[in-house]
């Protein structure tokens, strides 16, 4: 019975997301900028949270690179990480807790993730990963906050 999102679908977005548009390229807009403070909740079991921020539905869906991505070493149950100097607008996050630190979202032999994952806007999978509309968050000029709860 496959109730879940496949690991491949998540990995397509999240685990290959360690390259992003340079800040210089994104700074073409002279207007006000946005920042995003992310609270990362895990079981604190080590490894790293792999977080990828997407600026449009296509890249979020696996067809394109994330706007930003970060790897957060996990040592505590609640940690924070920030993305700064973002163009205000709609974004969505795919992320997973790389518990064993091998740089991949591990899956069992039937393709279901064996490591925790999280999406922005508290979106949860429902027989597949949540779509852009469910995970979308609007970043306004100035400070924004979001929580990724891997232990939910």
């Amino acid at each position: 019975m496959r109730l879940a999102v496949s690991a491949a679908l998540i990995a397509a977005g999240a685990s290959v997301g360690l390259h992003w548009r340079s800040a210089a390229a994104a700074q073409s807009d002279p207007g006000a900028r946005a920042s995003l403070d992310i609270t990362v909740k895990t079981d604190g079991s080590g490894g790293a949270a792999m977080i990828a921020l997407y600026a449009d539905a296509e890249s979020y869906g696996g067809d394109g690179e994330p706007a930003r991505a970060v790897r957060v070493e996990i040592s505590e149950k609640v940690q924070t990480v920030s993305f700064d100097d973002l163009q205000p607008g709609d974004y969505a996050i795919r992320s997973y807790h790389d518990r064993n630190g091998d740089g991949e979202l591990n899956a069992n032999p039937f393709g279901l993730p064996t490591e925790p994952f999280a999406f922005s806007n508290g979106a949860r999978p429902s027989f597949g990963p949540p779509g852009w509309d469910a995970a979308r968050i609007e970043l306004k000029a100035g400070d924004n906050a979001e929580t990724l709860d891997f232990d939910a």
């Binding site: 019975m1 109730l3 879940a4 279901l112 994952f117 949860r124 999978p125 429902s126 027989f127 469910a134």
Partner: peptide, 20 residues
């Protein structure tokens, strides 16, 4: 929660079979 013969509610948040 969806199951063998129960439809469940979309967005119930099933990450893996053990959630059901």
């Amino acid at each position: 929660t969806g199951g063998f013969g129960t439809t469940g509610r979309p967005g119930a948040g099933l990450a893996n079979p053990d959630d059901a």
